[in-house]
Design a protein around this nucleic acid. Structure first.
Length: 427
RNA sequence: GUGGUUGUAGCUCAAUUGGUAGAGCGUCGGACUGUGGAUCCGGAUGUUGCGGGUUCGAUCCCCGCCAGCCACCCCA
């Protein structure tokens, strides 16, 4: 048997839940003035080297990179921001006026050891607010993130924010960090020893050496006046919105493009993979990709993790069945049933027996599919043009013309000519 | 990539110191000849994850691989 590739997933019985979540997300984003952007699933490798950063784990060890037949180095997108920014630059979208607000939704690829909530092909939903450096843009972005979680019914999440400063103040902070860690170097784990030279900031979120991080210098003490003012205003805007947050100086995030604001939303009961939303500000990214300097903010939501959170909270929607299941008494009515199904499918969701089952089995099938009504077609019905319609919830039956069937099911009005039988079968 | 753990029917799980598989649920059919979720009865389905090894004999022991899960790394 050929099986799915490690770290991938078939979404088969839960597609309706995915649709529901995706619809909520799209709806919220649109309500806040964002419109959808769709970029390719693969890009030139160089985009991520430059955009995400050569020293990040994503680029170092997690990318699905291959050479195509033309000898180009191609990479399956590991995240959504760099491609959106590439498209922004490529289509000169700045000329359409700023800000530009986009949302995206789709599969991302990272070569990692799979776990619950961590797949090699996973799905992210994200938004990008391009063009504004004001703290109100950060607040707006965080607001949308929170609204999205609320829209799907999630409440037990925690927002953590931090500022990583700009290039100016970060330089001073990095220096202070190095000084702090230098005497401790021998006690650090191997990874941290490596990080010391490559990216000192990363030392802060190491779980093994978390003790040292506690008393390390705090980035917030090193922010320049502009960055400090930016961060303070963001906090006061969040306060105004009554959005609860915790300032956590250990949040540095693994992508190199972040400047100033970074934030994470965690859902603590998920275990090790508890980050359901991650985002922040990237004021240098577009310039890095060859565009004019354009500040941006955004975030990404992990769809699989949202699903896990919804499941653990029991907030899953129930599947919607068909409105009407068409049933035939004998084989002779099959053609009529087909014609009637075609007609009624113009007005409602319809299903029909395709297995040649007996009447009883057809009814079982209708209930299993949560059909609201069953339309019985037998000899009498075909002859009279009045069909037996059964409302499954209370087993009420009535004899109706096709027009009347539509009106009953669509619930528009009740006709005088309805001939209620009120018969109940079975039980 | 590192460490640990698990892998039996579609699903959840059984199988006494190694003697070559069973239950519940589901599915299909019947009791019910034009009526569903209940009840009763009956049928079907497994190369016990894959490949080797030890053994007279392996679901059980050993090795390798694959996959899931947990933690690390890191992140959504």
């Amino acid at each position: 048997m050929i099986k799915k590739i490690k770290g991938t997933n078939d979404i088969v019985e839960n597609t309706y839940i995915w649709e529901w979540v995706e619809d909520k997300f799209k709806e919220v984003a649109k309500r806040f003035g964002f419109s959808e952007i769709r970029t390719p699933i693969f890009e030139a490798t160089e985009l991520f080297n430059r955009g995400v950063g050569k020293e990040t784990d994503i680029v170092q060890k997690e990318m699905y990179t291959f050479e195509d037949k033309g000898g180009r180095s191609i990479t399956l997108r590991p995240e959504g921001t760099a491609p959106v920014m590439r498209a922004f630059v490529e289509h000169s979208l700045a000329s359409k006026g700023l800000p530009q607000k986009f949302f995206y939704l789709g599969p991302m690829f990272r070569y990692e050891r799979p776990q619950a909530g961590r797949l090699r092909q996973f799905h992210q939903y994200g938004i990008e607010l391009i063009g504004s450096s004001l703290p109100v843009a950060d607040a707006y972005t965080i607001l949308v993130a929170v609204e999205i979680l609320k829209a799907v019914g999630l409440e037990n999440f925690k927002l953590k924010i931090n500022s990583t400063g700009c290039q100016k103040c970060r330089a001073g902070y990095k220096k202070a960090l190095k000084e702090y860690y230098r005497p401790l170097l021998n006690n650090l784990c191997d990874d941290c020893k490596r990080r010391y030279d490559r990216n000192v900031l990363r030392l802060l979120d190491c779980k093994r050496d978390a003790e040292y991080a506690k008393s390390a210098p705090n980035i917030l003490d090193y922010l320049c006046d502009d960055c400090k003012a930016h961060f303070n205003e963001l906090k006061s805007l969040l306060d105004t919105l009554n959005i609860e947050y915790e300032v956590d100086p250990s949040i540095v995030r693994g992508l190199d493009y972040y400047t100033r604001t970074v934030f994470e939303i965690k859902y603590p009961s998920l275990g090790a993979q508890d980050a359901i939303i991650g985002g922040g500000r990237y004021d240098n990214l577009i310039e890095e990709l060859g565009g004019a300097p354009t500040p941006s903010v955004g975030f990404a939501v992990g769809m699989e993790r949202i699903m896990l959170a919804l499941t653990s909270e029991g907030k899953l929607p129930s599947p919607r069945g068909v409105d009407l299941y068409v049933v035939t008494v004998g084989d002779e009515q099959r053609a009529d049933a087909l014609k009637i199904s075609r007609e009624l499918s113009k007005y409602m969701r319809v299903d029909i027996d395709l297995m040649g089952r007996k009447l009883k089995a057809q009814f079982s099938n209708a209930s299993r599919e949560n059909a609201r009504y069953v339309l019985v077609i037998g000899e009498e019905e075909v002859k009279s043009g009045l069909y037996t319609l059964k409302r499954m919830s209370d087993r009420t039956q009535m004899k109706l013309s096709i027009d009347e069937v539509v009106m009953e099911i669509k619930g528009k009005r009740r006709l005088e000519s309805f001939e209620q039988e009120n018969t109940t079968f079975g039980s």
